[in-house]
Amino acid sequence: MMLDTKELANRIRKNSLKMVHRAKASHIASALSIADILAVLYGEILHFNPAEPNDLTRDRFILSKGHACVAVYATLAEVGVIPDAQLDTYGDDFSWLMNHISHKVPGVEFSTGSLGHGLPFGVGKALAANVRAQLWQTFVLLSDGEMDEGANWEALMFAAHHKLSNLTAIIDYNKLQSLDSVANTLGLEPLAAKLHAFGCAVHEIDGHDHGQISQSLKRIDSNRPTVIIAHTTKGKGVSFMENRVEWHYKNPNDEQLAVALAELRVSYA
C-alpha cells in the first residue's frame, strides 16, 4: 500500500489528539512521537491487506509501547482496517479500543501495556517464520525507557544468536521517560554501541524524516536482526507538548486541542 506518508502522519496526529481529548486520556506525547514512523511503516513498508488483516503472508507489526496506542488505532482507521467511526469509542466503557493497545482490534497482533513484552514476542514470531521458511517480516516498535527492561536484552541475545534477519526493532528514542529524561533516569548511552555489541545491525536516523525512516526500514541485514534508533521528539508537531514530561499524562482541554490542530494545519500546509 503506497500512501502519501506526510498526509498520513498528519492525520494520525490529528486523530490521536482528538481521541485523547475526547477520552480525557494520557500519553498523547508518546503517540505524537511515533506518528511519522507509523505513517512510513503502514504507508510504504508493511505488506498487508486491509480487508484481510489476518492474512498469513502479512508482515507483523507489534507496538511494544502499548500506551501510544491511539496512534496505531488512528493509523488502522486511515488505512481501512477499522472504520473511522470506531475511533470515537476510544476510552468508552467496554470499547475494543482500550487505552493500551489491544489484540481484540482487527490488525493488532498483540496486546501490550507492560513494557518489555513486545520484542521477545516478536522474536517468537520471527522464529516461527524461519522455522516455516516464510518470507514475511516482523517489526517491533519500542520506547526508549522500555530499554531498561532486561527482557529486551534477553530477546536481542536470542535474536542475534539465531540470526533473525527477518526481525526489525525500532526504538522511539525521544529521550523522555515518565518522570524525567532518559539520561537522568537510567542513561542508555552508548546505545548504538551496546546494540551493535549484542550482534544487531544498527541504524541511527531522524525518526521524523520520512526518507530516512523508509531507507532504514528497507535495509535488512542478511544474517542479523536490525535495530533502528529513531531520534524523535516527544510530543512532535504540537509546540507546547514537545519535550515536556507532563504531556505523558495530561490531556488537552478544548482550547489546547484547537491550538494543537491549528498548528498541525499550518505545519502540514
Binding site: 514476542f121 514470531k125 527482557a151 534477553e154
Partner: peptide, 23 residues
C-alpha cells in the same frame, strides 16, 4: 527445539510469539 538460555522472561514471551503463529 530451542534453548532460550537462562532467560525465562524472554523464553516465555517468545514462546507466546511462536504459539501466536500456530505452534
Amino acid at each position: 527445539f530451542f534453548n532460550a538460555g537462562v532467560a525465562e522472561q524472554s523464553m516465555m514471551s517468545l514462546s507466546a510469539g511462536l504459539a501466536s503463529e500456530g505452534f
